[in-house]
Simulated assay, not measured.
Amino acid sequence: MTPNQGCLKSFNNTCKVNTVPTRRNLFISVVSLFVIAWIVIATLAISRQPDIGVDSATELRTRLEHALNNRDSVEIEELIAYPPSDADEFAKNYIGELVRIGAHSISVTLQPSTENPSRALVEGGRSGGEVFSYLHNVRKSQGQWRIELTPPV
């Protein structure tokens, strides 16, 4: 192999290594661009997610009670900490269950206090005259009060 083999002569007669892209380099460049584009798109999608929750615990109680009594799945979706891709389906199923049991006169009480609650007690009547009640965890996260559907750790 001669010292100048694979060199291209430049205008000042210096040896310049052949810089023609190979298939491997082209493949790596294209894959790198796709990865970078995916990261940018994912970051933008996450940053555009609406904030979940409300400004105060009292507003959370009022809006949750209103949503449950009016069968408003969109409002429930805005109050629950649930993966955004599945929140709408969950909220619709939640409302569907209330409809199925004939729930009415639903009230929400924050516990242990309205200023700093950790739970929301949901109570109401069923179509057959029975009553029902259940608890949701409540949490303030990033300045927003919301319903947590996972047990506290």
Rank of each mutant, 00 (worst) to 15 (best):
R61K: 15
A42H: 05
Q49Y: 06
D88F: 08
E123R: 11
Q144P: 00
I101D: 09
N18Q: 12
D88E: 09
V153G: 09
V31I: 15
D51C: 00
V30W: 05
I39W: 09
G125Y: 01
N116M: 08
Y82G: 00
L98D: 07
F132H: 01
K16Q: 13
R139Q: 11
I52Y: 02
P117K: 09
T43Y: 14
L79K: 00
T62K: 11
E89I: 07
F132D: 07
C15L: 11
N69R: 05
P152G: 01
G128I: 03
G124W: 02
L68D: 02
R61Q: 15
N25E: 14
E89L: 10
Y94P: 04
G143F: 07
P83D: 12
T43R: 11
L60H: 06
V40T: 13
L79G: 06
S105M: 03
T150C: 00
N4D: 05
A57P: 10
V20H: 06
G129T: 06
L149M: 12
R63K: 15
T43A: 14
A103K: 00
T58H: 10
A91K: 08
A67T: 07
S133P: 02
D88L: 06
K92Q: 15
T43P: 01
P152L: 06
A45E: 12
R23K: 04
V54D: 03
N12Q: 11
V108L: 07
I80F: 07
T109H: 06
S85A: 12
S113C: 10
S73V: 07
S113V: 13
N137Y: 15
T43I: 09
G6A: 08
